[in-house]
């Protein structure tokens, strides 16, 4: 199918004896925005990390745009298709904001420095941080760092951006500025997979919400479905806790 971006088939992941992901099947369309929710330890981060091959599936496969990820091709695939925004931002602290954004385009995609800087400044403009281009990450607030991290993911122009709890490490007053950037980014035709507990974000951008617990996808549907009519008792219980 031409409009399938990510296809996960029979994915299992063990950490030692711990069975973290149990027979996951999932298809994500090109340009779809998917939000994954669920209690901690439910396997949602592991799932999204498998899509970037930061975790190697024990069995099953992750197919990106028709090509299965393997130990051999995953770096090349990451270069071409996906970038990740992390809970802890993971900006490179020894480089300025601008250098953080231009490093991969220059070294990996062989862009000229001028071109990379131009793209980077446009991305920074978009997240509202062009003024901070010469600053070092540690001198920025958490919210600003995460916006830079999102800009970094934008700079490499991959069609998939994976968000692994992008607002969980932030002070409450900084969450909205990051969500605003993500909401704005969602207007682009990129495929976004986002692990988060921010249901308002889900309501605004998600085409589909997945609820995970105990290594399985227990329920999926539109955001409205989750607000009005969740079926699974564990899902109801979880939503009660985060919405009230």
């Amino acid at each position: 199918m031409a409009d399938t971006m990510i296809e996960i088939r029979g994915l299992n992941k063990y950490f030692g004896d711990l069975h973290v992901l149990k027979d996951i099947d999932l298809t994500v369309r090109r340009g779809e925005k998917v939000v994954i929710i669920g209690p901690s330890g439910s396997g949602k981060s592991t799932l999204i990390r498998c899509m970037d091959y930061l975790e190697e599936p024990t069995t099953g496969e992750v197919v990106i745009d028709g090509t299965p990820l393997t130990r051999k091709n995953h770096l090349e695939m990451a270069r071409k298709y996906s970038s990740m925004v992390f809970q802890q931002f993971n900006l490179y602290p020894n480089m300025t904001v601008l250098k953080n954004l231009t490093l991969a385009p220059v070294k990996l995609q062989k862009k000229s420095k001028d071109e990379a800087v131009k793209t980077a400044m446009a991305a920074l403009e978009r997240v509202g941080l062009a003024q901070k281009a010469g600053e070092y990450p540690q001198n920025l607030s958490g919210g600003q760092q995460q916006r830079v991290a999102i800009a970094r993911a934008m700079c490499t122009k991959q069609p998939i951006i994976l968000f692994d709890e992008p607002t969980s490490a932030l002070d409450p007053e900084m969450i909205q500025e990051v969500l605003d950037v993500m909401i704005e980014l969602a207007q682009d035709n990129i495929t976004m997979i986002c692990v988060t507990h921010e249901m308002n974000f889900a309501k605004q951008v998600a085409d589909r919400v997945l609820f995970m617990d105990d290594g399985q996808i227990l329920e999926e549907g539109t955001p409205e479905h989750f607000f009005t009519n969740p079926q699974n008792p564990r899902c109801k219980d979880f939503l009660n806790k985060i919405l009230h």
Binding site: L54, L75, A78, R79, M84, N90, A104, K107, T156
Partner: peptide, 20 residues
């Protein structure tokens, strides 16, 4: 996380050591 960020951008481990 630094190595993970580098790998997720598509740097090889050697490149990640060298640049990051």
């Amino acid at each position: 996380g630094q190595m993970e960020a580098a790998l997720s951008q598509g740097f090889t481990r050697v490149q990640a050591y060298r640049y990051i």
